[in-house]
């Protein structure tokens, strides 16, 4: 399965990754290889087979509706690249 540079650009936009032209070509080639290898799975007959997203038989795991103390404010932004007055500062949303 060969994928195009346009596919790579589209996926990079969804994944929010800036890619150089070289990286685009490298990823195009490598992703094509991996997907080519993965083609074997499309040949498997999975008619009537349920997908497994969990290997656990667990259901109904809940917590009680009890409020706990939140994080001390100084810890909330202590790792933030850019914070102001307890809020996280980001470039404008266009």
């Amino acid at each position: 399965m060969a994928i195009s540079i346009e596919d790579v650009e589209h996926v990079a936009r969804l994944a929010r990754l800036a890619l150089s032209e070289d990286e685009k070509e490298t990823f195009r080639r490598q992703l094509s290889d991996v997907l080519e290898h993965a083609r074997v799975i499309s040949e498997v007959d999975t008619e009537g087979v349920e997908p497994t997203s969990h290997t656990l038989p667990l259901v109904n795991v809940f917590r009680d509706d009890v409020a706990r103390p939140s994080l001390p404010t100084e810890e909330v932004t202590s790792n933030a690249p850019w914070a102001a007055d307890g809020a996280f500062r980001v470039p404008r949303i266009v």
């Binding site: 939140s70 909330v76 307890g86 996280f88």
Partner: peptide
């Protein structure tokens, strides 16, 4: 005040 009701999970 901003981010006073937050913890590692909801952040």
């Amino acid at each position: 005040a901003p981010n006073t009701s937050t913890c590692p999970i909801c952040l």
